[in-house]
């Protein structure tokens, strides 16, 4: 088997004396789509933040292409350029319009030519159906449109993998679909992605693998059909039951 793109070994994360992530180990292969699920507060968002070194870790290692990602290290900005991340909300820069939001990092960080990035950005905006919004400001966009712009902004840095942290959690139901569709098409293109989400049907449709995290530990690491049809652990069964309702009358 080829060298994994991302290799996480014995990752431990504490806030004060609270263990949030406890001895997490898993690999992500090139082109794999991993969906991380679990109850609120189980540590799944923290996991993504650790991968992008937005949080210091207290043990273990995270390696991209065999190179370790270290919080506060000198080459961190270089490493982060290879990892695109989209957050739950409010992460577009409100003082810049859509196109400037997208162009800022490629021009200032990667020193690429404006004309070239702009062309690429417009093409990507067209694909997510927002090329007519290039000059709009974030406040003029709906939540779903903002999230699609945030995805394009991440893609323009040419990352080797993408992290999605509950990107639809703050959206109205009718906006959720348009964002998930964009993510599905990225999966079809063979992008490597780690997705944290509460949309279970979407998780099942997009995932190559499901990681179920409970109390900071990986409880299940399996393919989606097995996870949703035959969860091995009681905790996963309990968790999946939250999404089922019985008739009350």
């Amino acid at each position: 088997m080829a060298e994994p793109l991302l290799k996480i070994e014995h990752l431990t994360k504490k806030f004060e004396n609270n263990i949030v992530l406890d001895d997490i180990s898993f690999d992500v292969a090139q082109g794999e789509v991993i969906v991380v699920v679990g109850a609120s507060g189980c540590g799944k968002s923290t996991l993504l933040r650790c991968i992008n070194a937005l949080e210091p870790i207290q043990g273990g290692s995270i390696k991209l292409h065999g190179e370790e990602i270290v919080y506060g290290s000198k080459n961190l900005a270089k490493m982060r350029q290879q990892i695109g991340m989209v957050f739950q909300s409010y992460d577009l820069f409100p003082h810049k319009n859509v196109i400037d939001n997208i162009l800022l990092a490629p021009m200032k960080v990667q020193k690429r030519k404006k004309s070239e990035v702009r062309e690429e950005a417009m093409e990507l905006l067209r694909r997510v159906g927002l090329d007519d919004k290039a000059e709009s400001y974030p406040r003029q966009l709906s939540g779903g449109q903002k999230q699609r712009v945030a995805i394009v902004r991440a893609l323009c840095m040419h990352p080797v993998m993408l992290l999605f942290d509950e990107v639809t959690a703050a959206l109205d139901p009718e906006m959720v679909r348009e964002v998930l569709d964009v993510m599905l098409s990225l999966a079809k293109q063979g992008r490597t992605m780690i997705i944290v989400t509460h949309e279970m049907q979407f998780a099942r449709a997009i995932a190559d693998r499901i990681l179920f995290i409970d109390k900071g530990k990986i409880v299940e690491d399996t393919d989606p059909d097995t996870f949703f049809e035959h969860p091995a652990s009681d905790r996963a069964k309990q968790f999946l039951n939250i999404f089922n309702f019985e008739r009350s009358k």
């Binding site: 350029q81 909300s89 409010y90 992460d91 820069f93 990667q110």
Partner: peptide, 27 residues
Amino acid sequence: IEPIQMESALSLGMEKSQALRYVVLPQ
């Protein structure tokens, strides 16, 4: 300024000083 503004600038590969100059300070 929401901390997420700094974080999303960092996650785009900016140095802290660039994030401050282009994203946090203007706002």
